[in-house]
């Protein structure tokens, strides 16, 4: 391995390695410093742990959530709602974008509606969904859909319309039908757009789920946060926010893995 490598190259690689290690070190150090500082400030009574909580109390809260099994109930509920939301949002958004790509007329008719719906703050629709669908997961998933659907439609449609004109010309001379152009050119060439929509929708779905759970719910991380703040259990609120951050980051990671796997499966190199 190290044969064939010039001294300069070896030095460069060593430099890179050192640099990477320093970055990793400081990332963890910063985290540790933050929590230690927080704990110390609470112990020294610089901040009131009743209001600001502190890591040791959060750890205790986490342990009790874990042992009572509540942790899995709440994390599971929110995660399932989010997954349902972003899969539905991405699929429905893509399907509607396909329909609009297919028919120029429909897309012209839909345009002003998309513009208005896109600029509407979707959270305003929350109470309506609750009335329509009852206080439960249905309303929460509807909330996530409302947030992610329009953006998905617009992004996907844009991608579809930017499909290389020369490639479409080529497909047509090879006798392709519109359906074949869709499945063999437009969709595969927009693979990256779709993955991107998926990534954006994970984030948006979390917003929708937490918003929804704030409004109505008997379980979920959003519920815990609202409940905790109402009974003034700040330890519970802070712990939940931390769990939420970890869950959301982990889910995003999963999407990155999925992207990698799909790319490998499809042999995509772009």
């Amino acid at each position: 391995m190290s044969e064939g490598i010039s001294v300069l190259r070896a030095e460069y690689l060593e430099e890179q390695r050192k640099n990477r290690r320093a970055v990793t070190f400081w990332r963890w150090a910063l985290l540790l410093l933050f929590f230690v500082g927080w704990e110390a400030a609470a112990r020294a009574e610089l901040i009131d742990p009743f209001i600001f909580s502190c890591p040791s109390r959060m750890a205790m809260t986490l342990a009790s959530l874990f042992s009572s099994g509540e942790l899995f109930l709440h994390v599971g509920t929110s995660v399932l709602e989010t997954i349902a939301g972003f899969i539905l949002g991405t699929l429905a958004g893509t399907a509607i974008a396909v329909a609009l790509w297919w028919s120029d007329f429909c897309s012209k008719v839909a345009e002003p509606y998309l513009v208005v719906l896109n600029s509407l703050p979707k959270t305003a629709l929350g109470p309506i969904f609750i009335v329509w669908m009852g206080a439960g997961p249905g309303a929460i998933i509807a909330m996530t859909l409302a947030i992610s659907l329009i953006v998905t439609i617009l992004d996907m449609l844009n991608g579809f319309l930017e499909t290389d004109k020369e490639k479409i010309r080529l497909m047509r001379t090879l006798g392709a039908s519109k359906l074949q152009i869709l499945f063999k050119l437009v969709l595969p060439s927009n693979f990256a757009t779709m993955i991107n929509a998926l990534k954006v929708n994970v984030g948006l779905s979390w917003v929708g789920v937490i918003m929804g759970e704030f409004l109505v719910s008997k379980a979920g991380l959003g519920y815990l946060i609202v409940y905790g703040s109402q009974v003034f259990k700040m330890d519970l609120v802070m712990t939940t926010v931390l769990i939420l951050a970890l869950s959301a980051a982990l889910m995003y990671r999963c999407i990155l893995w999925l992207e990698k796997a799909l790319k490998k499966y499809m042999g995509v190199t772009v």
Binding site: K167, L170, M171, L174, G175, G267
Partner: peptide, 24 residues
């Protein structure tokens, strides 16, 4: 028809590209 640039589909192998016509 041979278009501007080669317009080979990057998500297909060479075999997948050259058999596009018969496939369609």
């Amino acid at each position: 028809f041979m278009p501007q640039k080669d317009q080979l589909f990057p998500w297909r192998t060479i075999w997948g590209n050259v058999t596009l016509g018969p496939e369609l």
